[in-house]
């Protein structure tokens, strides 16, 4: 059984679930779907612009919908179906977060949620700054370009896998990635020395 979403030689390759499309047609038990795809849903939600602090909420909401609609699912392209649900949930979440920020406070939760890791305080600080810059640049990009770029560059998905997830042709994904990279480089070139 060949996994359809298995990436070769990429950082996230070992984390891709070992479930084929054919297999997903046969076994659509919720627990199995949850166990196999939870981590992928979390990755997608981060690529779609969700802050790490909100990932649990997003994943919970996604799988609530999955549990509710699993009986209606026709079994074709389970990753694509999950990805569509995730993208809608993230979009709704971002909209409600925008309203919350508008009404309650004006904070950049996404940047605040950046986790700082490092071997020393100096390393942590440097990494913190770089990650903040990265998220600032990503935030300024369009949602499709951003998702494609993060999935490809950070999460290690291949173009074919992204195309399958998003339900578009591979050529579309390459074009999108090309534009995303161009946009990303333009934004990076605009960053000052201090990264602002």
């Amino acid at each position: 059984m060949v996994p359809q979403l298995l990436s070769k030689g990429l950082p996230g390759a070992s984390l891709v679930p070992r479930m084929s499309i054919e297999e997903s047609r046969i076994s659509l038990d919720f627990s199995e779907v949850y166990t196999s795809w939870f981590h992928e849903v979390s990755r997608w939600s981060r690529a779609l612009g969700c802050a790490e602090a909100e990932m649990d909420d997003i994943a919970q909401e996604v799988f609530l919908i999955v549990r509710r609609k699993l009986d209606e699912f026709d079994g074709a392209n389970l990753p694509g179906w999950l990805y569509r649900i995730t993208s809608r949930v993230v979009a709704n979440h971002r909209r409600s977060a925008w309203f919350r920020n508008l009404l309650l406070r004006n904070r950049d939760e996404e940047l605040e949620a950046v986790v700082y890791v490092g071997t020393s305080p100096a390393d942590s600080l440097e990494e913190k700054q770089r990650r903040e810059q990265l998220y600032r640049v990503l935030k300024s990009m369009g949602p499709k370009q951003r998702a494609s770029l993060v999935l490809f560059e950070i999460e290690g998905y291949s173009g074919e896998e992204i195309a399958r997830l998003e339900g578009v042709s591979v050529a579309t994904i390459w074009t999108r990635l090309h534009k995303a990279r161009k946009q990303f480089l333009a934004r990076v070139s605009q960053l000052g020395e201090d990264g602002v």
Binding site: P11, G12, L15, H39, S42, R43, R46, E127, R130, R131, Q133, L134, V137, E153, I154, E155, G156, F184, L185, V188, L191
Partner: peptide
């Protein structure tokens, strides 16, 4: 190079 450096600062989840 700077863009690559920024991208390397974030790891896969």
């Amino acid at each position: 190079a700077r863009a690559a450096d920024l991208l390397r600062s974030e790891r896969p989840l």
